[in-house]
Each structure stands twice: as C-alpha cells, then as structure tokens.
Nucleic acid binder design. Structure first.
Lengths: 121, 121
DNA sequence: GGCGGCTGATTACAACTGTAGTCAGACACG
DNA sequence: CGTGTCTGACTACAGTTGTAATCAGCCGCC
C-alpha cells in the first residue's frame, strides 16, 4: 500500500470521518491550525486519488471524494511498521516502553487489563 | 528532535548497537540487503551529523561516529507520534487494534498482563 | 450574454530522502 | 618519491511531500 504523508493523512482523517465530500467540504473540515488554502487541499486530494487511497465519483462538474482504503487497514499497516522497525515486531516492549515513559496512567493499565481479560476467553 | 528517514534509521541502528565506528565499519555492519555503496553510507553519516543525531570525534584523518541521541529517546518520540496520530495518544486502542489483527498470541497477553501487574505496584 | 466564482488539471518550487559520483588532501606501500 | 587508496566535503539528481499559483472550462447571476 502507498505511503501517506502527514499532511495527506489529515485529509484522509476528514474523509474517514465523513464521506463522500467535495473538495470544498474537505477544506472546511480540515483542522484550521494547518492554515491550508483550498488549493493545498485540492492538491492533497489529487495526490491521494493518484495513489489509489481515495476514490471519486462525479457529481456534476465536481468530484465527491471517499476513502478507497479502510482506516483500519492503514492504521494496521503503520502500527505494524513502527512495531517492526523499533521493537522487532513485538508489542510487549512497546507497552513496556510507553509505560516507562509515563504514558500509562493507572486507569490505562486497568483498561488494558480488562481488554486482555476479554481477549483470553 | 529531527526526523530520521528509513535509510538513515538503519545507520543509526548500527551505531546504537556498537559505537564509535568509522564510516567503513558502519558500512560493513549495515544489513547487506540494502545493497548500499560505501558512498551512500557516508552520505547518511554526514546528514545525521548535520541533523545533530550523531557526534563525531577525529581519529587521525577519519571520524569516529557515535550516536548523539539515545535510542530510547528516539523510539519514544516515534512511538508517541504514531500513538498521537492514529489513536489520539491513547495506548489502549493500539493494543486493542493489534490484538484484533492477530498480532497478539496468548503468550503475549500473559506477558503484558505480568508487565502491567508489576507496573501497578 | 458577459462576468465572477468555483472545479479539476497542470505547473511551480523548495525541503527532504535515497542513492550515488567527484574532488582535494593525507597516508601507506612499493 | 610517486601512485593508488581512503577520507570527509561537496555536488548530482530523481522522487516525495508540503504548500500553493495558474489555467481552461462550466454555471449561475445581473
């Protein structure tokens, strides 16, 4: 599957959240802190189309854009990449790492324990 | 902290594993499947120096390279990035996600449970 | 029926990345 | 001593990414 840059990813997020949308609608929904012009958003949309991660249908003279890949699949691919690259593909060291780095509160721990308990059955 | 590309990262891995090393030694230790020329490795080393993630000391007319940032720190940064970008910074959804994707065996689950138990005390 | 605005398509351009080649100087061997 | 070798520095060049401008066509409003 194609790689997606940071900026492109934000456009995908918008469309994973709501689709189909026109270019203008996507531009409206992109987080304002990026300060993008509509032109930039349209460039992103074209590139994502070219990469095959977006699909479009024509609505009059405009396009309606929608994701062509599931967020799930993309996220799976990217987390797999990180895991393979940094932790030899093993999740435990990642959890240990984040825990040490104080990214895990007691509530988080309880939550994950509950999740694991559910998984075991 | 600076971003590091995939190829650059492999060079860092070599030096995190063993340092200091000369350029030639790094080239020897880089996984052969990349098929890099020594020139390529030297370019990587220069760029990593420029980015401040490597340090060098002179040994005669050569450099000895060593990491200027801890692997721990870099890994923390990158896993944080992924987590923020894909899971709103929360680890539980990542664990849930990977579990669903069959990246978690029963043994993994047991291991993480043990880890969490240790963390709670 | 012409004009302003919107659309996608095409083009621009700098930074970064992957992958190397060239160059000038030092060193080591014959 | 000369000559090839190795070093870091600099240069090259295409592909990707972020950010946008230009262009040609269509649509609705005055």
């Amino acid at each position: 599957m194609e790689r997606i840059g940071d900026a492109e990813y934000q456009v995908m997020e918008v469309l994973w959240d709501e689709a189909p949308l026109t270019a203008a609608e996507v531009a409206d929904r992109v987080p304002a802190d990026r300060g993008w012009s509509i032109r930039t958003v349209k460039t992103m949309l074209s590139r994502l189309l070219a990469k095959g991660v977006l699909a479009h249908e024509e609505e009059g003279r405009r396009y309606l854009y929608r994701p062509a890949i599931a967020r799930e699949d993309y996220v799976a691919q990217e987390s797999g990449r990180l895991l393979d690259r940094m932790f030899g593909g093993r999740l435990t060291p990642l959890v240990a790492h984040l825990a040490e780095r104080d990214r895990l509160s007691d509530a988080d721990i309880a939550e994950i324990e509950a999740l694991l308990k559910a998984l075991k059955s």
